[in-house]
Amino acid sequence: MRIAALILGLVLTSFLSNAQEKEGVTLTVTIENVLSNEGKIIGALHTEGTFMKGAGIATEVVDAEKGEVTLTFTNVEPGTFAIMILHDGNGNNRMDFEANGMPKESYATTGELVFGPPSFNSAKFEVVDNDLDFRIRF
């Protein structure tokens, strides 16, 4: 009987510890059309307060690979967010612009495709309690 109680206790402890490990959701972002192997792909998770104003609340960086690359944001708590993606081809960790103000490097956001600079309202999504997958094109 003591052995059965011990085994039951270990099983319950295992379930409780696994339930406590996950503190937020996972956001998986696949960029479908990376055009070259040069530089890095930088993804930033933004709130309305950080969108288009600076660094996001979380950043993921992977080496650029022609074709598809995937970024993963883990332990994201519930809220309203947007993701911005940049193909930083020259590795200077920022977007470069032409003299006329047009971007030199590929970029994308979650949400609706808009003409002109992206807005938080067009890029936002809600995180509740389920993992989310996004497929984005530059």
Rank of each mutant, 00 (worst) to 15 (best):
M1R: 14
I3H: 13
I3D: 13
A5P: 00
L10S: 14
L12W: 09
L12V: 15
S14L: 13
L16S: 12
L16Y: 13
L16I: 13
A19W: 12
Q20I: 05
V29W: 05
V29C: 06
T30P: 00
T30E: 04
E32N: 15
E32Y: 08
N33I: 00
V34A: 08
S36I: 05
N37H: 09
N37Q: 04
E38N: 14
K40S: 13
K40F: 03
I41F: 01
I42N: 09
I42R: 13
G43C: 04
G43L: 06
T47G: 01
E48F: 07
E48M: 01
G49Q: 11
T50N: 00
F51L: 00
M52L: 09
G54T: 05
A55N: 06
A55C: 01
G56P: 01
G56T: 02
A58I: 04
E60T: 12
E60M: 11
V62N: 08
A64E: 01
E65K: 09
E65L: 00
E68S: 12
V69H: 09
V69M: 00
T70G: 06
T70S: 12
T70K: 13
T72V: 14
T72D: 03
F73A: 08
V76H: 09
V76E: 08
V76K: 10
V76T: 12
P78T: 07
P78I: 03
A82E: 00
A82L: 02
I83T: 09
G89D: 05
G89V: 13
G89C: 07
G91H: 07
G91W: 02
N92Q: 10
N93L: 06
R94G: 11
M95T: 11
D96P: 04
F97I: 08
E98D: 13
E98Y: 15
A99F: 12
N100Y: 08
G101W: 07
M102Q: 14
P103R: 03
E105H: 03
S106Q: 11
S106H: 10
Y107F: 14
Y107E: 03
A108H: 09
T109V: 10
T110K: 04
G111P: 05
G111E: 05
P118L: 08
N121Y: 10
S122C: 03
K124P: 05
F125E: 05
E126M: 12
E126Q: 15
V128R: 15
D129G: 14
N130R: 11
D131K: 04
L132Q: 15
L132F: 09
F134A: 07
R135E: 05
I136H: 04
